[in-house]
């Protein structure tokens, strides 16, 4: 066991060289790398903190926008609902008005149709009544209707001759109108009958298609009529009564 001082000096030199080599190739690169990585990690963490703060701000902003949007959506929904309800009420009111108007129009139309039908029925009834009467009178009594009507006119004016004279005054002409032209025999009967009551009176004859079957006499201010209007009115009333009964029967199932 001895110490070689030359070797000691050489080893001290070797050790110093080794310190320099390891400092150059080991410690400095490793420690600098660690420091750089720590610095990078610190920067990244700071960036992460900043990003997190930004994300939190963005989240808060987003939540605020979402809340605002929900509020606006609620408002828009309420407004739309109110508009829809108003529009529905308007449409319903309009429909009700239109239905009411149509119902009124339909009622007017029904009244018009009814009036037309009644007029038509009145006319047809009058014609049928006159035709049946004439046929029955001819078949059963061998008499002419117009002739009998002329006799009836003459018979009827006889008791009221005084009243007719007062009504006629100074009038010396009489007008006899009928639905259809009177036969000459019937005109002769009427003319004779009137001249017996009013001597020298001129009798004129005229036809009026709008007039009901029968005779009308106009003498000054007096006017006398013997027509089938009253009979036709009775017939129309009877038919209307029957029609009303039929309408009630039709309406009953709907009411049930």
């Amino acid at each position: 066991m001895s110490i070689d001082w030359i070797t000691v000096a050489a080893q001290i030199g070797n050790f110093l060289v080794l310190i320099w080599l390891l400092k150059r190739f080991l410690y400095r690169p490793i420690l600098d790398g660690i420091d750089a990585r720590e610095s990078e990690i610190t920067q990244r963490m700071q960036a992460a903190v900043v990003a997190k703060e930004q994300a939190a701000e963005a989240e808060a902003d987003f939540r605020e926008q979402l809340s605002d949007l929900r509020f606006r959506q609620s408002e828009m929904t309420d407004s739309a609902q109110q508009q829809a309800e108003a529009q529905r009420d308007s449409l319903l009111a309009e429909a009700h008005q239109r239905l009411e108007r149509e119902r009124q129009d339909w009622a007017i139309h029904l009244d018009e149709e009814r009036a037309k039908y009644i007029a038509k029925l009145h006319k047809a009834g009058a014609g049928a009544l006159l035709s049946l009467t004439r046929k029955a009178l001819c078949d059963l009594a061998d008499q002419n209707l117009e002739t009998q009507m002329a006799h009836h006119l003459v018979t009827q004016i006889t008791p009221m001759a005084a009243d007719l004279h007062r009504a006629a005054g100074s009038c010396n002409a009489a007008l006899v109108t009928s639905h259809a032209a009177l036969t000459p025999a019937a005109q002769e009967i009427v003319t004779t009958g009137l001249q017996q009551q009013f001597p020298g009176i001129a009798v004129e004859y005229a036809t009026d298609a709008a007039q009901a079957p029968g005779l009308e006499l106009r003498l000054g201010g007096a006017e006398l009529a013997w027509t089938v209007d009253s009979y036709v009115d009775d017939l129309a009333a009877l038919i209307e009564e029957q029609l009303a009964a039929g309408a009630d029967l039709k309406a009953q199932p709907h009411e049930i």
Binding site: T7, Q11, V17, L21, L22, F25, L26, I30, A36
Partner: peptide
């Protein structure tokens, strides 16, 4: 050159060589 100095150089070469190999491409 005795064995002490020679083997010291060997150890130095091993340590330095290993360090150089590992840290030669050391970049961030």
């Amino acid at each position: 050159i005795n064995a002490t100095i020679f083997y010291t150089w060997v150890v130095m070469a091993v340590l330095t060589g290993a360090s150089m190999l590992v840290t030669r491409n050391l970049r961030p």
